[in-house]
Simulated scan of single mutants.
Amino acid sequence: MGDSEEQLRKVFQTFDTSGDGTISKSELGKAIAQCEKTPPDQKLIDALFNAIDKDGKGSIDFNEFVEFILSLPPPVEAVRAAFQEMDTDGSGYLEKGELKKLLEKAGATKVSDQQMEQICKEIGGEDGKVSFEEFCSLMAQL
C-alpha cells in the first residue's frame, strides 16, 4: 500500500479526534458534519457506522476504515483518467488492441484475437469500440 496507506492513516487520525486508535459514532458524525452544509441525519450516521463497523464492537478500527474506503467506487475523474490513458490513439474509444493491453496488465495473458473480438462486441456493441460510458458500465459490474 505504501503512500496510500499513509494518506489513509492521516485521514483516519483526523476522524479519530480522541486519539484512541478507533473512530466512535460521535467522531464519525462530527467528521460528516464538517463535510456537509446541513447537519447530518442521525439515522444516516447510524447506518453508515454499522456498515463500517464489521465486527460490531461499537468502534471503527483502522482496518475497517481502510476496507470501507477501498469498497467505495472511484471518482469519475479517476475513471476518466484511466480511460484516457488506455485510449492511446485519442479516438475517444477503446479498440481491440487497447483493451487487450488492459487485460494483459490485469494478468490475462492468453487472450486470443477471437476472444478479444467477442469481448469487444459484448462491451462495445456491434462496432466493437468501447466508449467511456460503456467502460463505466463495465467497471460498475466488476
Rank of each mutant, 00 (worst) to 15 (best):
E27M: 06
A81G: 06
G21D: 11
L48S: 15
D20G: 00
K25P: 00
I60N: 01
T38R: 10
T14F: 09
N50I: 04
Q84N: 13
S18N: 14
I60S: 01
K30H: 12
T38D: 15
Q42S: 12
K57H: 07
D87H: 03
D87I: 04
L48D: 07
E67H: 10
T17S: 14
D16E: 13
I52C: 10
Q42Y: 02
G29W: 04
N63K: 13
E64Q: 13
D16R: 00
A47C: 06
I60P: 00
I32P: 04
F65G: 07
V79M: 15
I23F: 00
G21C: 05
I60E: 01
G29V: 00
D53K: 05
I60V: 11
L44C: 09
P40D: 08
S18R: 07
E77M: 09
M86W: 04
G56M: 08
G58R: 08
K37M: 10
A78K: 13
K25N: 02
P39I: 01
N63G: 13
I60M: 03
D41W: 05
V76K: 11
I32K: 01
K30L: 11
F15D: 11
G29Q: 12
D55K: 14
D53F: 03
L72H: 02
L72P: 09
F65L: 15
I32W: 01
A82M: 14
E85H: 09
G56K: 04
P74N: 08
F62K: 09
G58F: 08
I52Y: 05
K25I: 07
K30W: 01
A81N: 11
I45K: 02
S71D: 08
S59E: 09
D46R: 06
N63C: 08
L48I: 11
F65Y: 12
D20L: 00
T17P: 01
L48Y: 01
G56S: 08
F15V: 07
Q34Y: 03
D61T: 05
P40W: 03
A81L: 12
